[in-house]
Simulated assay, not measured.
Amino acid sequence: MEQIFSKLKFITHGEGFIDITHDLNLCVEKNNFHSGILNLTSLHTSCSLTINENADPNVLKDLKKYMQSIVPYDSYLTLSKNREEISYKHYQEGADDMPAHIKTSLTNTCLSLSFQDGKIMLGTWQAVYLWEHRFDQKERIINVHIIGEKK
C-alpha cells in the first residue's frame, strides 16, 4: 500500500455545480494507482462536495433551487408559531456568505470514494460535483489523499 497527498484547484463561476469526476480519475491515473480509496476534503466553508446524477441537468437545477428555498438570503423565518423574521448577524462578506455557510453545513465537505482499475467506482448515472454556494467566481482547493495499490 502506498499513499499520496495532492491538491486540485477549480475556478467556479458563481452558484452551481462543477463535475470534477474526470479530474479525480485523472489524479488516480497520473499517480499510477490501481485500486484503493480516494479521500477528498474541501478546504473552504462555503462550497460542498456531492455525488449526484450526471444524466439530466434538471436534477442539479432542482437541487440548487431547493437549497435556495430552504436557505434564503438576508434573513429567514423561524419555524415557530409566530414565524418571526431573523436577519443573519454574519453579513460582512456579502448577502450570500452566511447562507453559503449554512448550505455547506447541510451538505458535505468530505467524501471517501473507492476506486478499482484506476477509476472511481460510481453508478452509471453518478458524478462527483463541487457545489459552489457563493455568487462570485472563486478559486477552490480540494485536498486529495489517495491510499492504495500502485499498478
Rank of each mutant, 00 (worst) to 15 (best):
M1V: 04
E2K: 09
I4E: 03
I4D: 06
K7F: 13
K9T: 07
K9G: 03
F10K: 00
H13P: 00
G16P: 08
F17E: 06
D19Y: 09
I20T: 06
T21N: 11
H22L: 07
L24A: 05
L24E: 05
L24W: 02
N25L: 06
L26N: 14
C27R: 02
K30N: 13
K30C: 08
N31V: 09
F33I: 05
N39G: 02
N39H: 09
L40Y: 02
T41A: 12
S42L: 15
L43R: 01
T45H: 06
C47R: 00
S48G: 11
S48L: 01
L49D: 02
T50W: 12
T50D: 08
N52T: 15
E53V: 07
A55V: 13
P57Q: 12
P57N: 12
N58Y: 11
V59R: 06
V59K: 05
L60C: 09
L63P: 01
K64G: 04
K65F: 00
Y66C: 09
M67C: 04
I70F: 08
S80H: 05
S80L: 11
S80Q: 07
K81W: 03
R83W: 00
E84S: 10
S87Q: 14
S87W: 10
K89R: 06
E93T: 04
G94E: 07
A95Y: 04
A95D: 03
M98I: 05
M98Q: 11
A100K: 07
H101C: 11
T104A: 13
T107E: 12
T107W: 11
T107G: 00
L111R: 06
L111F: 04
S112T: 10
S112I: 01
L113Q: 02
S114C: 06
Q116T: 02
G118R: 01
G118N: 08
K119E: 13
G123N: 06
W125P: 02
W125K: 13
W125F: 13
Q126L: 03
A127T: 09
V128G: 06
V128E: 04
Y129D: 10
Y129F: 15
W131P: 02
E132C: 07
R134K: 08
F135N: 14
Q137H: 01
K138M: 00
E139G: 00
R140L: 02
N143S: 14
V144M: 07
I147G: 01
I147H: 09
K150I: 13
K151A: 10
